[in-house]
């Protein structure tokens, strides 16, 4: 992790996985873990446009959704997709104010689920300002934050 934005994004996302899904991050990136099984994106507008992408590999999604619902048995595909969208929404909603300052007003669109998100989204006009991976025992989460503007112009809250 190089940038302040990435540190904030990692800290916020790790806390959210822990509080919502009882998933504890591991210290090492898992090279063998399957990644990018499925993902969700949250587009936002405000001082500038952008989007946050969350992709989950391995068994994270099924464990996350079961834990969110307090169920031991597997949940439906529909509920898994909803859990992924909600996780992306909460991560985005928590990370943006901390990265760009709590006075900035962002409007988040309804999160969208993708089976193969990188092939669907057109991110050509946006810069990737943060890219993190969070390893778990059951797989790996990858999070990308794209925005029209450079990170350095806006990082204010992080200090």
């Amino acid at each position: 992790m190089n940038s302040q934005a990435e540190k904030i994004l990692y800290r916020k996302a790790a806390l959210i996985f822990e509080e919502m899904g009882f998933l504890m991050p591991q210290s090492d990136i898992c090279d063998d873990c399957q990644t990018d099984d499925s993902g969700a994106s949250v587009s936002f507008t405000g001082p500038f446009k952008g989007c946050l992408l969350l992709s989950l590999g391995g068994e994270i999604l099924s464990i996350l959704s079961s834990n969110m619902l307090g169920q031991e048995e597997p949940v439906s595909k529909q509920m898994e997709e909803d859990a992924l969208r909600e996780a992306a929404n909460v991560i985005c909603g928590n990370a943006l104010p901390e990265i760009y300052g709590a006075k900035e007003v962002f409007h988040l669109d309804t999160p969208v689920f993708y089976n193969n998100m990188h092939s669907v989204l057109d991110l050509s006009e946006q810069s990737c300002i943060a890219k993190i991976a969070i390893p778990f025992e059951c797989g790996q989460a990858n999070i990308f934050l794209y925005a029209e503007s450079k990170e350095a112009d806006y990082v204010s809250a992080a200090g």
């Binding site: 928590n94 104010p97 901390e98 007003v105 962002f106």
Partner: peptide, 24 residues
Amino acid sequence: STESNVDRVENIRRKNVKFVHKPF
């Protein structure tokens, strides 16, 4: 809600509601 903007949260609180921030 995930809302974290201080002004919007304050505006919501003025509507005589309690606020619980996601994740909770």
